[in-house]
Simulated assay, not measured.
Amino acid sequence: MKSITSPNEQSLSQRLIHKFHLSEQLNIIRAGVLGANDGIVSVAGIVLGVAGAQQSQAALFIAGISGMFAGALSMGGGEYISVSTQRDTQKTMAEFQKYHIQNDYDAERNDLTQHYINEGLTPSLASQVSDQLMENDPLNVTLKSKCNIELKHYFNPWHAAISSFCSFIMGSLLPLLSITFIPYPYKVPGTIGAVVLAMTFTGYASAVLGDSDRLKGILRNLLVGIGTMAVTYLIGGSLG
């Protein structure tokens, strides 16, 4: 017989799944993967540029740690601003739709009926479905059909910002620790190798989340990462 798990016995992952709507979960994951990816590429580019300039171990570490926190704050702040704008737009669309329902109910009902006809229902069945749904919750159902917005499921900018900030820190630790602790003369090639492995993982994760071609996602990620490291290393070498 299947046992019933009490709320106190649920794991953290289970509680998070119940707390966040699917769209919110995907937005948090997207911000996390993007932050980790940027952390790897940005800090790898910085430390390899400094290494190319033949700077000291202390200079490498200071440049890396500065880039890590500057990038994390920039990513977190950017996500907060971006998602806040998206949230404000969702709320504005909800108010706009509420106004239209109050002032032109029949037109909204007809639009909903046409939506279900386009989805494949017969006109009579689409009309019945629209009547029933408009009776129960007209604002939510018309928002969902027109704008794919669900009431009370607006994106939270803090979730995306914190996810992006923390993942940027985690991603940037790899090139920072590699360039700091791998001894000469393996410092640069060792860091590049570590970054390539990390970029392979984040490229694969991005492709899985986007349900796209895995190999293409990995190759695209590696191209950006290797290109960034090559350019910054050459610039550092030419100026050092």
Rank of each mutant, 00 (worst) to 15 (best):
R15A: 11
M68V: 13
S13Y: 08
D131I: 08
T228L: 06
S84Q: 13
V129T: 02
R30I: 04
Q86C: 14
L34K: 07
K152R: 15
S206E: 08
A31R: 03
E9G: 02
K216Y: 13
F201V: 15
I81A: 05
A107N: 08
L215I: 11
L143I: 14
S66K: 00
M68P: 04
V188H: 00
A198D: 06
Y186L: 14
G76T: 14
N110S: 12
G39N: 09
A161E: 09
V43E: 01
H115T: 03
A31H: 04
R87D: 12
V50P: 01
V43C: 03
N27M: 13
V196Q: 03
S164I: 10
S13V: 13
A194I: 06
P138L: 09
M93N: 08
N110Q: 15
V83G: 05
S3T: 12
I81L: 12
D104Y: 06
H153E: 08
E135S: 15
M68K: 06
V43P: 00
H18W: 11
G237K: 15
D104W: 11
Q25R: 07
A53T: 08
L73H: 02
Y116F: 07
Q97V: 05
Y233K: 08
S11Q: 01
N156F: 14
A72I: 14
S212F: 10
Y154A: 10
G171T: 13
P189H: 06
V33K: 07
L222Y: 02
I62W: 03
L215S: 07
Q54M: 11
Q128R: 01
G77H: 11
L143C: 01
Q90S: 12
S164N: 00
V224T: 15
L197V: 09
L239W: 13
L121E: 06
I46H: 00
V129R: 00
A194L: 15
Y80H: 12
G45F: 08
T180P: 00
P189E: 08
Q128S: 01
L151V: 15
Q55S: 07
G77K: 09
Q86E: 15
V83P: 06
E150D: 13
Q10S: 02
I149T: 05
H18D: 13
S124P: 01
L177R: 05
R220Q: 09
N156G: 11
S163I: 12
G71H: 10
K19T: 13
T92A: 08
S124H: 02
T85Y: 07
K152H: 15
Y184R: 10
A161W: 07
I149A: 09
V33E: 02
S212P: 06
S56C: 05
A107L: 13
L174D: 02
L239A: 11
V43F: 05
Q54L: 09
A160Q: 09
V83W: 05
E79P: 07
H115L: 02
A70K: 05
S124G: 01
S11E: 02
Y105N: 11
V50Y: 08
G203M: 14
G217K: 12
L222M: 04
S84G: 04
S130R: 00
R15P: 03
E24K: 06
S6P: 01
V47L: 01
G78F: 09
I40P: 00
A70F: 12
S238P: 00
L209I: 15
H153K: 14
Q14Y: 04
Y80E: 06
A31I: 06
G67M: 12
V50N: 04
A70I: 15
T113P: 00
A58M: 10
